[in-house]
């Protein structure tokens, strides 16, 4: 069902983890739907993304798209990172099954959310960046 690239990024996800004091961090998705992505970015004074890390709760495709998205934005300028669309993530993974296309949208959204956080922290406006849809329930009931 998954391409070899998807399986590779699921089995050996690149850039899993957190960044301490990140330049920007964004969390998107919804636990109800079964996918949550959190992306951390470290952006230097020239606006270059030095480091990208992620954590994801979700299916194989959700992990693989997060992994690929971090790979695609690393070393890029903010404007270049904005060009990393869901289509670009999908193509880099040699495609996704139709029911998993939403995972690539989530990856794009995670990049935007992290950049939005960076812009807010630095009180700047990033050309072409919309406020991301932030649609997750952070609360987890303590029922155990």
């Amino acid at each position: 069902m998954y391409s070899e690239k998807v399986m590779d990024h699921f089995n050996n996800p690149r850039n899993v983890g957190e960044i301490e004091n990140p330049s920007g961090v964004g969390t998107v998705g919804n636990a109800k739907c079964g996918d949550i992505m959190r992306m951390y970015l470290d952006i230097d004074e020239n606006g270059i993304i030095k480091e990208a890390k992620f954590k994801t709760f979700g299916c194989g495709a959700a992990v693989a798209t997060s992994s690929m998205a971090t790979e695609l934005v690393k070393g890029k300028t903010i404007q270049e990172a904005l060009q990393v669309t869901n289509k670009a993530v999908m193509e880099a993974l040699d495609g996704l099954p139709p029911v998993k296309v939403h995972c690539s949208l989530l990856a794009e959204e995670a990049i935007h959310a992290a950049l939005w956080d960076y812009a807010e922290k630095n009180n700047i406006k990033i050309e072409g960046l919309q406020k991301p849809v932030n649609d997750i329930e952070e609360k987890i009931e303590e029922e155990y």
């Binding site: 739907c33 996918d35 299916c59």
Partner: peptide, 26 residues
């Protein structure tokens, strides 16, 4: 299993030769 998603679990079990299923959406 709290905090994780079923499909990822099934794929990794499969890679260890274990056939299982999940009520997972995916």
């Amino acid at each position: 299993f709290k905090f994780i998603e079923g499909e990822s679990l099934l794929i990794l079990l499969d890679q260890n030769g274990i056939c299982a299923s999940s009520g997972s959406a995916c």
